[in-house]
């Protein structure tokens, strides 16, 4: 697994992909920080996180699109799959590689927070750290979730373009669950869909609520999609 992880991280930074991701993440979050906080002299970062949630729907699939699709296209999967590495190790390596790049990018949010808290302290205000960590945890979990979806979709195709577009569509759909549920008249069905709503669970974090239930919900979906990826790769051997 470590070999795959190292190779993934190296690949992100020997190709422009990793840098482009970092640049887009930092510049957009910087722009929203200016619009939402600096321009209006507010220290509440909620708006910035909100916007980054939507940005992630689109940029994380770009990060993950090549993970497995490209291996298949270049036939390098013949190396990894015939090496003494488990499928779990391969998928875990790819997941952690993308997650590492995402974490590098998201660290910029902590830098913004430190800066804002210093700025608020200078005018005798109080920076809401509890609120910030809630937002941040939500961002990390949603990032990991989008990564696991992106890798799963990437395992279904050889084309990076299809992988990216497919993941964006899936991300949008799962984030629309609570809107979809409000259009459904059947109460039970509507409840089921609502309880699967990623956006609703995410928004609880943004209110600074760390509920174990929500954390388990995110982690289990992440594990589930990684498990699907393993199954897809395994299944290909039988076709």
């Amino acid at each position: 697994m470590t070999a795959i992880l190292k190779r993934e991280i190296r690949a992100y930074f020997t190709t422009p992909l990793g840098f482009v991701f970092l640049a887009v993440f930092c510049s957009l979050s910087g722009l929203f920080l200016w619009l939402d906080c600096l321009a209006v002299e507010s220290s509440a970062m909620g708006g910035v996180f909100q916007m980054m949630f939507f940005v992630n729907i689109i940029i994380i699939p770009v990060l993950t699109m090549r993970t497995i699709a490209d291996d298949k296209r270049q036939k390098t999967d013949q190396l990894t799959l015939t090496s003494p590495v488990s499928l779990f190790g391969i998928v875990a390596g790819k997941f952690l590689g993308a997650f590492f790049v995402f974490m590098c990018a998201s660290t910029v949010m902590i830098i913004y927070a430190v800066f804002l808290s210093a700025a608020t302290a200078s005018v005798d205000g109080k920076f809401e750290w509890g609120m910030f960590w809630g937002h941040y945890a939500g961002l990390v979990l949603i990032g990991a979730l989008f990564i696991s979806i992106g890798i799963f979709i990437s395992s279904l195709t050889e084309s990076q373009m299809i992988a990216a577009i497919g993941s964006i569509v899936v991300n949008i759909v799962i984030c629309l669950f609570d809107i979809i549920s409000s259009y459904i008249s059947n109460a039970t069905l509507s409840d089921i869909i609502n309880s699967l709503s990623v956006y609703y669970k995410y928004s609880e974090f943004t209110q600074g609520i760390f509920s174990l239930k929500n954390i388990v919900f995110f982690l289990s979906i992440i594990v589930l999609f990684n498990f699907f990826t393993i199954r897809v790769i395994e299944r290909r051997r039988y076709v």
């Binding site: 190779r7 690949a11 036939k75 999967d77």
Partner: peptide
Amino acid sequence: PEIPPLYQDMTVDEYLNFVYEL
């Protein structure tokens, strides 16, 4: 394999090191 499973973006040394670890 028929088509050598090479990572195009690596140098030969990096690639062999990767295989060594793998």
